[in-house]
Amino acid sequence: MRPRKLCGAAAAVMVAFSLTSYLASRDASAENNFPQNSDVSETAKRDDAAAAGAFEFLSKVLHHPRCMNCHSSGDFPRQGDDGHQHTMNVRRGVDGHGVAGVKCSSCHQDHNLTGTHVPPGAPGWHLPSVAMPMIWEGLTDRQLCEMFKDPKQNGGRNVDQIVEHMSTPLVLWGWHPGEGRTPIPIAESEFLAKVKEWASKGAACPGNARAR
């Protein structure tokens, strides 16, 4: 009997250990999506409060019209600081690059043109796709943060890839929008530093609050 009991106890310990390990790993990947094996994570110390604070800062930037005009509700881009619907009935299209006959690249070049009232441009000008529209109009900071980290909603990106995406010319166009458009008023370098801070400190999300 004794050996049997010992065996049962060992099995129970092993099951408990496995379950604990599984839950710990699930916590890390599902809730925090903490970057692994990367430059960002290797030097980082997890600090949920600092990460959440950094995201709140990012959220202010992400709600600027230069960002919102491609991340608002509806299957169309928006224009101007008032976010009015893009003229000419321009549509998102399945891949986010427009519909047959009217692509984003029909008018938008890979750089801004000289003068006012001409189409702005950056490499790869497009909206998010229908499958992952990345609409964050009306979301709280926490909801937006969770959307950012969810590969099913963010284009299959992990946190490192989000950091990378945030420094692409299309995103940074918000600071260089061309004549006649209001640039994002926060320094680009400060924004990029906060993106890295958020990721390196564990990419935690802020608590619930009102939508911006």
Binding site: M88, N89, V90, R91, V99, A100, G101, V102, S106
Partner: peptide
């Protein structure tokens, strides 16, 4: 040329899709 480009990409385009293409 806009109509031709639209129909080359989507030969079965509906009247609404053709109107969308010509919106600009």
């Amino acid at each position: 040329l806009t109509a031709k480009a639209a129909l080359d990409e989507k030969p079965q385009a509906s009247d609404e899709e053709i109107r969308e293409a010509l919106g600009g």
